[in-house]
Design a protein around this nucleic acid. Structure first.
Lengths: 255, 255
DNA sequence: CGGGAGCTTGATGGACCTCAATCCCTGTGG
DNA sequence: CCACAGGGATTGAGGTCCATCAAGCTCCCG
């Protein structure tokens, strides 16, 4: 796998094809790999002066804690995802990030990030696209928690995960490995652990999907989508490149 | 009120002080005002080829509909807020926007938006800051719906609204006008109308706040925050300007 | 063999939803 | 000036979904 950003680049390539210098730049701006043991908190809520990170391998979760000890998981970053882009602009991080498995990240200094916007506008556009995509997922998550029943919500969650992992080549046919336990799933979906367990059994009984031994098998993709009201995200738009300025890249997006 | 963007500029000024040319640019890129009658849908879900808009006056809601007829309201844009920034980058809008009162918006073409990033990096940074701020509110919304009880959630919602309106000068002391009805509040908070009504009565009985005749009066701000577990957002960071490139603006943010 | 992490199942209760009805206010038209 | 309609707020009764409490299970690892 070539140097620059590996899985992130793979994901971004669904949006815009990157040139050799851009790939080189992506490789150059990343710190050497930082290894996180399972359970390590990389970013704390309220921590000031953040950099951004790229998750290279392993899974994590970003979350907020409540005064009563409750926890809401915002998203589960998987390899190729960016962390903390938002906290670069807000002064402090508004949420925490913690590794769910042993993981590897690389850091990107905010100075490099701004150089990227200035000198490699296509990269900047691609990052904005990735941010928008994440935000769209966040919206969908809100819809789930606000308006979908426990079983719809759970089905929707795994379908989304399936699509995300497919994009970076970590899902094969209708199965993929998933190192989450029922506790963290509950905290993501706004349910109790026990109810998550019951819902998973329902899904199994309905022969829709099975979650066992860190493996997800989707038995009936169509019926799952039907149940969850799931719509696949738009396929990526590979932007044709005629010149390399940011203006053009955004303009093309709107046509 | 001077030309360029009025309330949006006022909001952005909490982040970075804008120069005369920047203000002029902001004024120039906006279309003439578009008047929307109450109830008009400006953007439909799935509509392709979006522009961004600035809401100049009136209130609206952005939302997603579900197959079963349910609706999840994502946010209530108020004057000075941007609409549809995200849908400029994703090919289609992932949610709808509808005017809740008679409203006025101006449009910004995506070509202008890219020119802004290229030629007025401070403006670009300010827009990214505004996007990040919106996303942080979205996260907080998710936390509310996922993990807070109905009364906490409701209290939190009005406190956030209070802070947002204060920022643009639309709240005075502890009261502000609020053209929402219990139906839309329910759809935002993931509750039924009836339950919203009961919760509002509880808040009234506890002498925390009153919602009557389109007016919110917060009687006990401290107790409200205590109940909701509410934290005010960081005060804006007014970035000192030494030069006008994007790199510097981002660098300064991280210190 | 013991212990711990995670999964599973049952019983009970509560928060919130649904259905149904009434009330209030405002605008409208005869 | 009053009747009426309609949007919105309010209240009650009953039911459901999901949380909480409590226990037992399985598997892995020391």
């Amino acid at each position: 796998m070539r140097s620059g950003g590996s899985l992130l680049v793979k994901k971004m390539a669904a949006f815009v094809k990157l040139s050799e210098p851009e790939l080189a730049f992506m490789a150059e701006v990343q710190s050497r790999p930082i290894h996180l043991p399972r359970g390590r908190e990389l970013v704390h809520e309220g921590q000031p002066g953040q950099s951004a990170y790229i998750l290279q391998s392993g899974w994590g979760c970003s979350f907020k804690l409540l005064p009563d000890g409750g926890r809401q998981i915002i998203t589960f970053p998987v390899p190729g995802d960016c962390l903390g882009l938002r906290s670069m602009l807000l002064r402090t991080s508004d949420h925490a990030f913690s590794a769910l498995t042993d993981a590897v990240v690389t850091r990107i200094e905010s100075a490099h990030m701004s150089k990227m916007f200035a000198d490699y506008p296509y990269l900047g556009a691609a990052i904005l696209w990735a941010m928008s995509r994440d935000e769209a997922m966040l919206v969908e998550h809100l819809v789930s928690v606000g308006r979908r029943s426990a079983i719809e919500r759970t089905a929707h969650f795994f379908l989304e995960l399936y699509d995300r992992l497919s994009l970076i080549g970590l899902a094969h046919k209708e199965h993929f490995s998933c190192p989450l336990n029922q506790y963290v799933i509950a905290d993501a979906l706004g349910l109790s652990t026990i109810h998550v367990n019951r819902v998973l059994r329902q899904l199994r009984d309905k022969k829709l999907m099975t979650f066992k031994a860190q493996k997800i098998i989707i038995h009936d993709l169509l019926a799952m989508k039907e149940l969850a009201g799931y719509e696949s995200p738009e396929a990526g738009i590979v932007v044709a490149r005629e010149n390399s300025n940011f203006e053009a890249s955004l303009q093309q997006l709107s046509h």
